[in-house]
Amino acid sequence: MGKFLVLQTDFGLSDGAVSAMHGVGHMVSSEITIHDLTHDIPPYDIWVASYRLYQTVKYWPKGTVFVSVVDPGVGSERRSIACKTQSGHIIITPDNGSLTHIQHYEGLEEVRIIDEVESRLPHSEESHTFHGRDVYAYNGARLASGEITFAELGDTLSVTEIEQLPLVEAVRENHVLTGSIDVLDIRFGSLWTNIPLAYLQAEEIVHGDLLQVTIFHQGKKIYQNILQFARSFADVQVGEPLVYVNSLVNIGVAVNQDSFSDLYHIGTGIDWQIQLRKAPKILFEEV
């Protein structure tokens, strides 16, 4: 087991919640190192929490323990679980769909149910609204430090029994690539889709080609334009839109030095669909 504990929440940093989670981790063990994935998940947005885990987990050493707390059902009967991924990482989280992308794209090896009564920060029994500190950070630190083993967390749960959010698969059909806009590159407003670069390569689309990009919301066309498939943002003028390959080797859509999402009022999730196709060449007659 590694000595890394990585925290993700929707708590923000304006109060002491995240600091308390760090403190609990260090009380359990002074030998672990605690890092933050992000604490700016939109409030209650399980989908984004799931995606950020998928974006990040595989780039940490095997054995790293992740704690993800976006938990609108805290204090209810929803389960607290720990999962061991096929990539050799451990994630502790509410069983509310926050493992959707990891399960789909990376795969889960084993899931354990955490006993929220027995396996929690000592003397926290009367608190029912801060499981991020009392259950998740506490057990995450115990795992990362080697105080307990994964098997000691609780009973096993079938991988197929955990909660899942609906996903839409990307499709390549009749030279049209269709997918969903899964998430934003937050600070820059770029759109991250689930269309893999391999689909463009199968259509023999290369950098410099022009693509027809069409975006739908619940089936209604919101945007359509011809964009360059660029290697980098610098390939187009400032203010111009482009298609590019993001850090997960999926297709993104952006505006150089501006927010595509803000400019065109584009959101994310399975209600937002995007289609790409190679644009026909336009020939202009000489006058």
Results as ranks from 00 to 15, higher is better:
residue 80 S to G: 13
residue 80 S to I: 02
residue 80 S to V: 02
residue 80 S to W: 07
residue 81 I to T: 09
residue 82 A to C: 12
residue 83 C to G: 08
residue 83 C to P: 01
residue 83 C to R: 00
residue 83 C to Q: 01
residue 84 K to C: 05
residue 84 K to I: 03
residue 84 K to W: 13
residue 84 K to Q: 14
residue 85 T to H: 09
residue 85 T to S: 06
residue 85 T to P: 03
residue 86 Q to C: 12
residue 87 S to E: 08
residue 87 S to M: 06
residue 88 G to W: 12
residue 89 H to M: 11
residue 89 H to G: 04
residue 89 H to K: 10
residue 90 I to W: 08
residue 90 I to E: 00
residue 90 I to S: 05
residue 90 I to P: 01
residue 90 I to V: 15
residue 90 I to C: 06
residue 91 I to D: 00
residue 91 I to V: 15
residue 91 I to K: 02
residue 91 I to S: 03
residue 92 I to A: 03
residue 92 I to R: 04
residue 92 I to E: 05
residue 92 I to W: 08
residue 93 T to P: 10
residue 93 T to D: 10
residue 94 P to N: 06
residue 94 P to W: 03
residue 94 P to Q: 09
residue 94 P to L: 04
residue 94 P to M: 07
residue 94 P to F: 05
residue 95 D to P: 07
residue 95 D to L: 08
residue 95 D to S: 09
residue 95 D to F: 10
residue 95 D to W: 06
residue 96 N to E: 11
residue 96 N to R: 07
residue 96 N to G: 14
residue 96 N to F: 08
residue 97 G to L: 12
residue 97 G to C: 10
residue 98 S to M: 12
residue 98 S to D: 08
residue 99 L to N: 05
residue 99 L to G: 01
residue 100 T to E: 07
residue 100 T to D: 04
residue 100 T to N: 06
residue 101 H to N: 06
residue 101 H to G: 00
residue 102 I to F: 04
residue 102 I to C: 00
residue 102 I to N: 04
residue 102 I to M: 13
residue 102 I to G: 01
residue 102 I to E: 02
residue 102 I to K: 06
residue 102 I to T: 12
residue 103 Q to T: 03
residue 103 Q to V: 01
residue 103 Q to D: 13
residue 104 H to L: 00
residue 104 H to W: 11
residue 104 H to C: 01
residue 104 H to D: 13
residue 104 H to F: 12
residue 104 H to R: 15
residue 105 Y to M: 05
residue 105 Y to H: 14
residue 105 Y to R: 13
residue 105 Y to C: 00
residue 105 Y to W: 12
residue 105 Y to V: 00
residue 106 E to N: 14
residue 106 E to D: 15
residue 106 E to I: 15
residue 107 G to L: 08
residue 107 G to K: 12
residue 107 G to A: 11
residue 108 L to Q: 04
residue 108 L to H: 04
residue 108 L to T: 05
residue 108 L to F: 04
residue 109 E to N: 13
residue 109 E to I: 02
residue 109 E to Y: 02
residue 110 E to P: 00
residue 110 E to G: 00
residue 110 E to D: 14
residue 111 V to G: 06
residue 111 V to L: 10
residue 112 R to T: 01
residue 112 R to W: 08
residue 112 R to S: 01
residue 112 R to E: 03
residue 113 I to M: 12
residue 113 I to W: 10
residue 113 I to K: 14
residue 113 I to F: 07
residue 113 I to P: 00
residue 113 I to A: 10
residue 114 I to C: 02
residue 114 I to R: 09
residue 115 D to R: 11
residue 115 D to I: 08
residue 116 E to L: 05
residue 116 E to T: 15
residue 116 E to R: 15
residue 116 E to S: 11
residue 116 E to N: 07
residue 117 V to F: 11
residue 117 V to E: 15
residue 117 V to I: 14
residue 117 V to W: 08
residue 117 V to G: 03
residue 118 E to N: 14
residue 118 E to Y: 02
residue 119 S to P: 00
residue 119 S to Y: 02
residue 119 S to A: 11
residue 120 R to E: 04
residue 120 R to H: 11
residue 121 L to P: 04
residue 121 L to I: 00
residue 121 L to F: 07
residue 121 L to K: 07
residue 122 P to L: 06
residue 122 P to A: 05
residue 122 P to R: 05
residue 123 H to K: 13
residue 123 H to M: 09
residue 123 H to R: 12
residue 123 H to E: 13
